[in-house]
Design a protein around this nucleic acid. Structure first.
Lengths: 113, 113
DNA sequence: TAGACTACTCCGTTTGACGTAGTACGTAAT
DNA sequence: ATTACGTACTACGTCAAACGGAGTAGTCTA
C-alpha cells in the first residue's frame, strides 16, 4: 500500500524536520517527538526520532546539555551547532528546488507526438 | 555532506516522479531516464530508474509492451495500469500535505518561554 | 568485423524508518 | 516500603530504496 511509500518518502525528511524544530531554540527528545507528532501527516515515534538525534550529534550538527528534570531522569537538551546551522541553511536551499521539480513534473502537459 | 541527505530524500520520491512522467502517456526506460535527467536537481542514473520500473511493474502499477526499435533492441514501453492511476492519485493527494507540513515547520516562530 | 549507440540487467553496499522491547529515574498513591 | 505510573530514553533487528560499477545484447555505420 501507500504506507510503505510514505515510509520511504520520510527518509531524510525527518532529519530536516528535526533541525527545523531546533531552529526555534534548544529542546529535548520528548518535546521534539511531541512537536513532530502534533504535525498531522508526520506521526513519528520515539524509535524514529532518537536515532536521528544521535546521528545528528555524531555529525556535530547538534550539541547536548543535560539538565535535571522536575519529573524523571535528566533532560538532554539538543541545540544546533554552527555546523548544524549551516547544514540547515543548505537544506533550506535545496528543499524548494526539489518541490519545484515535482511541481514541474505535475504540471507538464501530455506530449502530443 | 549534504549529498547523502539528498540521496535519502529521493527515496520514494523518484518512484513518484516516474509515475508523474508516465501520467503524460506511455514511455520506455531510456526516455524516462532522459526526462528525469533533464530536470535539474534530479540527476538520476539508469541503475536507479530501471529497478523502480521493475518494482512498479511487479506491484501491477505499470504494464509493459515491447515494440521493435528503429535503432537497437526492442523498446519496452511502460504505461500506467488502472492501479497505477489510483496510486498516482493517492500520491498526488499526499505530497502536498507533506510539503505543507514542512512549510509550517519552517515558518513557526521561535517559542518565547 | 569493429566500433558506437541504444536499452537494459545484475550485484553489492550504504543508510534510514520503524516495531518491539528494555532500562533508568522520579513522583504519588496504598 | 512497595507498587504503579509517567518521563526520557536506548538497543536490536528487519526491510527497502538509491546508486556505483560492470555486464549483456541487439542494431546501424564505416
Amino acid at each position: 500500500m501507500i504506507e510503505g511509500w510514505i515510509t520511504q518518502l520520510r527518509k531524510g525528511l525527518l532529519e530536516y524536520c528535526v533541525l527545523l524544530v531546533l531552529r526555534r531554540g534548544e529542546s529535548y527528545g520528548y518535546e521534539i517527538v511531541q512537536a513532530l507528532k502534533r504535525m498531522d501527516d508526520l506521526s513519528v515515534s520515539e524509535s524514529t526520532v532518537y536515532p536521528i538525534l544521535g546521528r545528528l550529534r555524531n555529525e556535530n550538527l547538534l550539541k547536548v546539555r543535560d539538565v535535571p528534570s522536575p519529573s524523571g531522569p535528566p533532560r538532554r537538551y539538543f541545540a544546533l551547532t554552527p555546523h548544524g546551522k549551516i547544514r540547515l541553511a543548505e537544506m533550506n536551499a535545496y528543499w524548494p528546488l526539489l518541490t519545484e521539480t515535482v511541481e514541474r513534473l505535475k504540471t507538464t502537459q501530455p506530449k502530443e507526438s
